[in-house]
């Protein structure tokens, strides 16, 4: 068994989701190669080489991979897979992983197992379906198993303790059919949503974007990340990268506080594996209370200022 893991990074540092994906890889086998594909990303490769479970780092450093375009990255990984005799290819189920991995699978003519939450054996995995309302156990008979990993379901491997060799990959896959135009990335001082220990999210009940300041004030006290429901995103209160749910980000912090969120199944799909859930809602029948450890039936505009002053 030989496993290729694709690193998620921003050309400067490894994204924590990579260490969690490596944890899933380690449960499959110990011969783990980590691919760092990017542009001017030597520092990422150096960091990757220090990760104890990584046996070998492949560094594909080229402008073609600078923005992780699926056409180029997909073709590169498929090429490496064919050359390297890998039995498994894993990537985090982030928007980047979701974008290029199915291309890898199709180029290799194999299926993909998306968003696994457990490794049962080298060929059998569990994954949520129907917005997490059912958990499927699936077995892959494909010669190369292409898998994306739900990061919140695995504990990160140690970032230190290794000294893997870094080998340069010369192959360049550069499609002229797709090009990067620009990006608008949210800059925030707060912890990243999917990695935070505490998350506080607001929904339609927040009424407008300005009121999110009330949430942020509490978040600052708790060192929390701020999330949102789809309704809050759709209404334009906050940007899309804050969305938690079936079709947004999956979070599983120690503490999740849902404020003015009703608890639609699509929202629950993204947060119900949190350790402790608090719901603040003025409607005592809101479905969110069915998953909350602590429910407070009250007006959020009273609760948030009180929380801020008492924490």
């Amino acid at each position: 068994m030989s496993i290729l893991v694709i690193a998620e990074h921003d050309n400067q540092a490894l994204n924590p989701a990579t260490l969690k994906t490596l944890a899933a890889a380690e449960q499959i086998g110990s011969d783990i190669t980590l691919l760092v594909a990017g542009e001017s990303c030597q520092s990422v490769a150096d960091e990757a080489a220090n990760v104890a479970v990584v046996k070998r780092v492949l560094l594909a450093d080229n402008a073609a991979y600078g923005h992780q375009l699926a056409e180029n990255l997909g073709a590169l990984v498929a090429q490496l897979a064919k050359q390297g005799d890998y039995s498994h290819i894993l990537a985090p189920a982030t928007t980047t992983g979701k974008n290029f991995m199915p291309r890898v699978a199709a180029l290799l003519d194999v299926g993909q197992v998306s968003d696994i939450i457990t490794v049962e054996s080298e060929d059998t995995f569990k994954r949520p379906i129907y917005a997490g309302n059912a958990i499927a156990t699936v077995q892959s008979g494909d010669a190369i198993k292409v898998i994306t990993v739900r990061a919140t379901a695995f504990d990160a491997v140690a970032a230190q303790g290794g000294s893997a060799a870094v080998d340069a990959v010369d192959a360049v896959q550069s499609s002229d059919k797709s090009s990067f135009v620009g990006e608008q990335l949210a800059a925030s001082e707060r912890p990243e949503l999917t990695a935070a220990e505490v998350v506080i999210s607001g929904g339609r009940g927040m009424q407008n974007g300005d009121n999110f300041k009330l949430l942020e004030a509490v978040a600052d006290k708790l060192g929390a990340a701020v999330g949102a429901s789809r309704a809050a995103v759709d209404a334009g209160f906050v940007p899309n990268d804050m969305q938690v749910g079936q079709t947004g980000k999956i979070v599983a912090p120690q503490l999740y506080i849902a404020v003015g969120i009703s608890g639609a199944i699509q929202h629950l799909a993204g947060m119900k594996d949190s350790k402790v859930i608090v719901a603040i809602n003025k409607d005592e029948d809101a479905p969110i209370f069915q998953v909350a450890d602590y429910g407070l039936v009250a007006d959020l505009f009273d609760v948030l200022p009180a929380l801020e002053s008492k924490l």
Binding site: V110, N133, T137, S140, K272, E284, Q290, L307
Partner: peptide, 28 residues
């Protein structure tokens, strides 16, 4: 054809319903 076999489908782990708290002080 497909090489991916569905072996089993289970309900997710249920969260046991929690408690209601009276106010912010009790919550904290």
């Amino acid at each position: 054809s497909s090489n991916i076999k569905l072996l089993k489908v289970e309900p997710p782990a249920e969260r046991s319903a929690g408690v209601k708290v009276a106010d912010v002080d009790e919550l904290i």
